[in-house]
């Protein structure tokens, strides 16, 4: 079927790009292997769709396609959540930069205060 052809071409392309990125040292070997397992799994499922049905019955889901959809939703949810977290980290870094600049306005007075406190501590 035509859909199978396009899917397999897509997976092969993804596999090629993955190893190209490894060769360019953009991703580590372990990550390249992980992605490759995913793409090859896609090829296997495309060629032998019955695999998903067998898997679906193991998980107690009616059809193989449903299992893939459920898994896709779970993976997407995870990725979106990860995105939110990296966004939050960036926000905090931005706050640190803004804060450092604001505290810079304190300048000499704070330095004077710090040295006074040190002297008191030593005394």
């Amino acid at each position: 079927m035509l859909i199978q052809f396009f899917l397999i071409v897509g997976f092969c392309l993804a596999l090629y790009v993955t190893w190209k990125r490894w060769k360019q040292r953009v991703i580590p070997l372990l990550e390249a292997v992980g992605w490759s397992v995913l793409w090859l799994g896609g090829v296997a499922v495309t060629l032998i769709p019955k695999i998903t049905e067998r898997l679906a019955s193991v998980f107690g889901v009616g059809r193989g396609v449903d299992l893939i959809l459920y898994a896709a939703v779970a993976v997407l949810f995870f990725l979106v959540f990860k995105l939110f977290i990296s966004h939050e980290k960036l926000e905090r870094k931005l706050t640190d930069v803004v804060r450092r600049e604001a505290l810079g306005e304190l300048g000499a007075e704070a330095k004077q205060q710090t040295s006074n406190s040190k002297q008191q501590g030593e005394g």
Binding site: V98, R99, A102, L103, L106, E109, A110, Q113, N116
Partner: peptide
Amino acid sequence: IVVLRHRINRDQGAALRTGSEAALRLG
């Protein structure tokens, strides 16, 4: 009074923390 300024809005919690850091530095 010491007046500090965030160049861009970072919201209340961030401003409080900046102010608290400043207060500590002021002894």
